[in-house]
Every structure is written in C-alpha cells, then in structure tokens.
Design a protein around this nucleic acid. Sequence first.
RNA 1: GCGGGGGUGGCCGAGCCAGGUCAAAGGCGGCGGACUUAAGAUCCGCUCCCUAAGGGGUUCGUGGGUUCGAAUCCCACCCCCCGCACCA
Length: 970
Amino acid sequence: MIYFAGEGRDEFKDWLRSIEAKWQKRWREARIFEADPDPSRPKYFLTVPYPYTSGPLHIGHGRTYTIGDVHARYLRHKGYNVLWPMAFHITGTPIEAISARIRMGDEEYIRLYRSYLKLYVKGEDEIDRLIERFKDPWEVMKFFSSVISSDFDALGYSIDWRRRFTTGDPEYNSFVSWQFIRLREKGYIVQGGHPVLYDVMEEQAVGEDDILGGDEIKPGIVEFTAVKFDAGEGRYLVAATLRPETLPGVTNVWVNPDARYVELEAKGERWIVSEEAEVKLRLQQHPVKRVGELRGRELVGLRVRDPLVGRSVPVLPGTFVDPDEATGVVYSVPAHAPYDYAALMDVKADPERFGVPRELVEGLQPIPIIRLPGYGELPAKEACERHGVRSQEDREALEAATEEIYKKEFYEGVMTAGPFAGLKVTEAKERTREFLFGRGLGFTFYEVTALKKPVVSRSGGKVVVAVLPDQWFLDFNAPGWKERGREALKAMAIVPEKYRKLFEDTIEWLDKRPCARKRGIGTRLPFDPQWIIESLSDSTIYMAFYTVIHRIRALGIDPSKMGVEFWDYVFWGKGDPDELAQRVEVSPEDLKGLREEFEYWYPVDHRHTMIAHITNHLTFFIMHHAALFDERYWPKKITLNEPVIREGTKMSKSKGNVIPLVEIPKVYSADWFRLYSVSAADLATVLDWRDRDVQTVGGRLRRFVEIFRMVAESEPSGERDVGVLARWLESRTASMLRQVDEMLANHRYRDAAIRAFFDHLRDVEIYLRYGGRDFGLLRKIFRSWAVALEPFIPHLAEEVWERLGGEGFVSLAPWPEPEEGAVRPELEEAFRVVERTIEDVNKILRTVRERKERLFIYLAPDWKYEIISRLEAELKPPISQKDAFRVASEFLRAHGKEAQHLIREFVGEQGAIRHSTPEAEREMFSALVDMIKDRTGVREVVIALPGEGVPDPMGKAKLAIPGRPALYLE
RNA sequence: GCGGGGGUGGCCGAGCCAGGUCAAAGGCGGCGGACUUAAGAUCCGCUCCCUAAGGGGUUCGUGGGUUCGAAUCCCACCCCCCGCACCA
C-alpha cells in the first residue's frame, strides 16, 4: 500500500510530503476553507497580520501563522464558521528601495536577492531574468506574494484565499482614503513641524535603510539647545549645547580657530555659526541669509554675554570643536564638562601657542554649579584625571569621561548656582530651556547622531536634520480618542495576559505620530496628495476590508466610483443604498449584500501575531477601531507569541542562520514543522529551534504512522477487549479529548499538542505492548484521535480519517464529545500507581545492588482504603494526629497497630496519599505484570492480593497502603 | 533613565497567578542495558549528594520575612533580556 511509510527515513519523509500535497489539493478543490456568512452557525473571524512582501518569510513567521491556523482548525471542529483570510502588505519604502538599488546596480543587494530567488527558482538564466524584472517594485511584490502564498499552502494553512489583496490595489486605496478622510473629520489628524533625517543632495527625507552603513551606525536625531551669546550691536554668537542647565557655569565660548564661520541675518539679528550650520538652520525652518564670512580665529578674544546670568566671557580657540556638530560654537563649563576642562587647561598652560593673550585666560577658573554625590567641586577635573586625559586631543579618554559625568550629573546632580539653584539637573534643564525659548534667547537645534560619523546616504548625500513644516500627524491625544482606546482595550482579551500592561502603557505614551511620507508605495493622502500614507497607518482596520473585497471584485465595482459614501454605507450603514447602488453601478441587493457580509463577520474575534507588534501595529489596530467603529465592532481578542531563535542564537541575515519557510516542506514536512513549532514552546516563550529536537519529533511522528499502519491494515477480530488496559485507554482517550479541547480553547497550544500527540501516542503504545490487540477499539480511538490531532497535523489526520472510513474531511468533523462517565479517574490513577511502584522497585534494586529474581507486590486490604477515604472526607490540612485518630477511631479498635501506622502515614503526608480504588489497583497490577518485568528486569512478578495467602517471608504485606503496595524482592 | 519581562537541576524548559500530591513534567545531552554481524533507528532503566529495601540530606539568582508548610506569597538586593516611535 503506497501511502504507508517505507523503511527508510527518506521514504517516510517522501510519503509524508506526498500525502500533504494530496490533501492540500483536495482541500483546494473542495474549497472547504472558503467561508461565507451562515446565520445558522456562530462565526469566528480570525486574522494574523499580512506579511510584508519584500523577501522570503522564515520559520519565525511560520510559527505565528501556524498558531493561527491551529486555532482556526480547532474552532471548525467546535462548530464555528471560521474566516481566516490573508493578504499582502506592500506599502512603504522597502520594496521601492529594493528596486531602486537593483536599478543602481548595488552589488550587495543584487547578491542578496539572487540568494532569495535561488530558494524558489532553478537556473541562473531565470534568476537573471527575475532580477531584471525586480527593477520594477511591482514585480518584487508580485513575485514574493506569489511564493509566500505557495509557502502558506504548502504548510497546510486553512486560508480563504478569495479575499486576497495587496495594499497597493485601487480598492484598497479607496478604502484607506475613506479612513483618513473620516479620521480627519473627527479631528484626529493634524499638521505641524517635524524633524526628520534628510539627504541634502537628494533633497528628501531618508530612513535608516537609505543610509550608508544602515543598521550598524544607528542614525538618529538629537535635540541641542542653541543659546545666543550677545556680542553687542545685534550680533549673537550662537552656541549649542546638550546641557543648557550648565549655563551658570560658563567661563568662555569655544570656536574652532581653523574652521569657517558665517554671519547670518536672522529675524533682524545677526547670528554667527559655523559654515556647516547654515544649511542646517535653513532646513530647520530658520530663515537665514548669509551676510559675512570669517575664520574661527578672527572671533578669538571677542567678549560675549550669556543670556541667563549675564556674565561677560571671552571667545577662545578650541581645536576639539567640530564645526559640523550643531552650530560649531560651544560654550565652556570646565567644572562639569571634561572637554572644556581639558581645553581650558591647554590654553592656560600655553596661551601663546593658541595665539591668545595671556591676560585673557589668566583669570579663568572653573565655576562649580552642580553638586554631585561622590565627587568634589570639579567633577570634570576628577573625570579627566581618572581617564588619563592629557589634552583636548585625547578624544577617546574625553568621550569616556564625558559620558561618565553627563550621565551621573543628569540623574544625580543638584544645581548649586544660578536661577535654578536647588533644583535637580533634570528639572533645571527643562526650566532653562523654557526660560531661553520664552524670551527668544535660544531655540532647539536638531543634529544627527550616530555611532559613526559622518552620516551619508546611499546615494552619497550628506545627511542632516531637516524640519518638515507641514508634516501630517495622527494626533492620539486628540480629545476623546485615548478614552475610547482604553475602553476598547479593557473589553478585549489579551493572551498571555501579562502583555496587557504593555498595551496600556503604549496607549498612554502615544502622542502625535507622523502618518504620511513623501516617498514610497501606498495610498495618497486624499486631502494633500503630495503625501503618501505611511505603512503602519494604512494597516489598522484592514480586517474590515477582508469582509467585502471578494464581493467587490466579483461585482466588478469600479474603484474610482466608490468614494467615501460607499464605505460609509458598507461599514457604517449610512446613506441611501438605492441611490448609492446606482452611482457605483451595482444592484441595490448586491450593495446590501456587502453591508450584510461586513455585519456578519465583524468584529474581529481574534488577532494573533508576534509580541513585537504590541507597541505599534496592535495598538494602532485598537486605536483606529476605537476611532472609527461602534463599540460592537471593536476587536475581541489578541493573542501573541514570542519569536523563534535557532540553536540558542538569534536568526539574522548577517549570521546566515535564517531558515526560510520555503525550505520547511522540502527539508522536513508541513505536519512535522507544525507539530514541532507548536509543541516546542508556549506562546510566551521564545522558541529555540534545535535540530536535535526537531528530529525527535520526526521520530515520534514516524512511530505514529507505523502504529496507524498496523491498525489500518489489521482485520478487526470482532472480539471486544474488556480488559482493564482497554478500559484505561478508552478513559485516556476521553480525558485527552476533554483536556485538549480545554487547552486549545485557552490558547495553551503547547500543552494541547503534547497531550494530544506525544502523551496519547505513549498511551497507545502501552496498550499495544501490554494490553490487547483490539483493533476495533483502536480504530475507534484513532478516529476521534484524528480530530484532536487535526489542528496540529491536518494532513496526517486526514489520511487517518479517510483510511478508517471517516466521512468527508476530518478538517470539518465535529469535535468528539466523550460521553458522561467516559473518563475513569480511578483507572488513570491506578496506572500511575503501577508506574510509581516500578520506580520504587528500581530504587530498591539500585540501593541493594544485588540481583533479584522475584518481586512480590502486596496490595492493601479494603479496610485501608476505607480509612483513607474517611480521613480524606473529614480532614483538611493542617491535620493533627489527634484529629486523625479521632476520625478513624473505629478502625483503630479493629486493626490496632496496622491502622495506626497508616494513620501516621496519612498525617505525615498531610493527606497527600495518592491512590485509586482497591479494585482498580488490583486489576491494573495484575494486567501490567509484563510491564513491571520489562521495566525492573526481575524475572517473576507475583501480585499478592490481600487474603490470598501468598508467601510473605519478611512480613511486608502489612506495610501496604492504598496507592503504595508493599514490596518484597528475593 | 523610563517602561515591560525574566533568573529553576549539565543544557533547553514546565511549574509560580489560585502555597502542600515538587528532588521538581517533558525534551536534549550523558551513562548502562535490550535488539542487531555492526552502526543507526527503536525500546527499557539511570542521570543533585549519601544510603546493603522504597530512607535521609541539600536544592529552584542572593539575603530576609509570612506560614504548620514556599520554587510558588511579601520585602530588599544582584544579574539578564526587550521596547523607547514615525520604521516594516
């Protein structure tokens, strides 16, 4: 029979793959996962975020989608009409950037994409052809969405593909336009200034992946405080600092003597800054005009006045000053800034060398203004000494010293001078800024920060910070929005619950968020079409789009005719459907059908994804639903899973240890992967992909198939096994069905997979080895077992189901509900009693280190079970000996010492004596004699039932207690 | 720094919310055995320390506390990981 596993490993894998392909085809042909409204059944709308189609997915994605699929499949068994749709995300810059780089001939990228293509297509020619096509972003997206959907099919995901779309489709654009128009009407969208990284050459904003060195140098934006030092006659030397609170300690101002400075006309004033700063000021929306140029050294000796305490200080030369950092002018606080301290000492030591008149610097002394625990008056001096700073050229040592002082003073320092004396540094900093800004004496100056400078874009342009004056924002702090968001969250289930706090905090922390960019793929802002809606902002309520897109397409509605009224009607039920129908050129019935389908499926019952999405996507998902929909359409539940790592290390492109999803069915198999990825870790645990463990799961899977083969090929004898082990296995099956049901309902996927597959497989093995061979019974068990296994290993389950004569697809079979009384706890406990006894025997054997041939097992007499039942019924911990003796007094009278011994045992264990019924224990021991022999290695096992007169040379029998028979080995 | 999550036996990892059945599931690794010409696969046993009969001792980051009883609750401390945005 061809579908059975062959002998070798590869044959088994081949067989698995062949049945997987077979069932995938059958599911597709029978369209069993296409979900349509059915008022007769409860609906369940499950979504997992659509993938971004810039490259192949990996097993981390696979874990998340598999969990979603397991849940969808489980709920179909529970009678739900389950909708699980999928689409593809193409919005934003990455896909466009890929094409741009391939067009530019970027070797690194071409190599990367060739390696991706190799996963899917054969032949260098074909790869070349595709790379050529990838110069068009649409082709990138088309290719990857197509292969990703094949990957999903190959893993057996039960997706309704009719609703598939991409976020670049015209219908989607119309939908997102509606969303933004309505958000704006509600006052949730505002416009304002916003700093961004900006390529001076290309004259456009850049993201991290547009920057050379990309993710390694971590480019960012930092806020300096520009401080205007009055040079008289309307001229100001504009210094910039990260520590405005140190202004009271200023002793001088530094300029780089060799750098070029410019004098700018700004708001009726003259500002002096470095030449490099000029363009930055302009980009940051300061209208400036160059009116003069000068060398840094020309400024030396100039006296300027600080705007806070009004001290007159000289301008001095500092070679450490970088003209390309902020304004290229810094003020000096030698008491608290190591650079300033070192530079000041340099100048004072040898003024001539710096071309400074001695009298200009002679009197300059550090001015302490911050008290710092653990330091003296001059923390900067101490830090310089500790780090071995010899001059202002010791960059490395100075950086270290600066970092030390900056951090310490920021968090621990207290001002001792100036208008904010007595305040903490953090507070003084804010107050100083307010003071300066309020009086026009300072402003925020944005600068690029990075681990390595200079920061240059991939196209070679210098990257600076620009302020966009007309950036569009989602204003999460708009009146009422957050309240609704909090309410929505409150009503929602979060699984695992421990992540709820993070959602709550994220909602609080949300402020204005830029929601559009000038580049990339996506939907244009309807009210300002030069902007393209940013990719997280256009993916917040798209689950609603799934409910109708397939119908819109089937009806052939022209996207350009839809307009806001169309979506108002579909989602809000607003407007006159007859009139609208005419406008979009469909029948009123068809239009109403759209509305009805939306109403049927909404709200989203369940969204599953990875925890990384909490602080962005998922919170927006909640917020936008809160903004645009009625309470009854707010999402009901979010479940989350941690990521996947491999052999203890993170997967990353650079390490080359990423396992692409497409390889899974080739190297392993769909069911194998599914079973492993669900059983190897809880939702809240990082899944460590270990090949050793994966192999173990494969081995178990194979064992399952072998047993199934035996069962399926067997001729049912017609004779029913009524032995205790058969009854035990039936009970185990019933309890498995109950437990797995409950576990899956509560998203305990790992526990469910272990119980349904591994534990139950072991039970079946035990039955086959030590019990009977009632194949009729086993067939029955396999049939309900197949349903419980179907969410995890759907292909194998279908095979089992079909082979055993199940009707239709097991994927659609109802969950088997065990009859009342099908679970027999006393049998299951009796089995455990036997297992524990085996452990005891082995412990004895190990301790005595002697070969023993024969094992006597003496079971306790009925009256001992009666004592225990009585005590259990009447006493709860803490249990005193006195109470126990009182409760069991009649037994004490009847059985004396032996009863006393038992009661003491009970008190000692505080009632925790695990046992079954006398009948079950006796039957089970008798039935499992062979298992006891196998596992202990003794040749003969004698089960001594009470009163049977079995020899008891050591008088052990009286020590027997319920759940723990007495033992004698000889 | 702020916010969040954690620290369990050689390793990974359950248990902790609802304290007792916890020397602590399961897997991996290791050791021994069965099977086999052999290897692999599979199966069985063992795998903190002591122990010549199922016993005892010491363990769940560290130190205290609550309790008849703590891996589980409380306090303090130490250490690790993640997020801090306009980016998918």
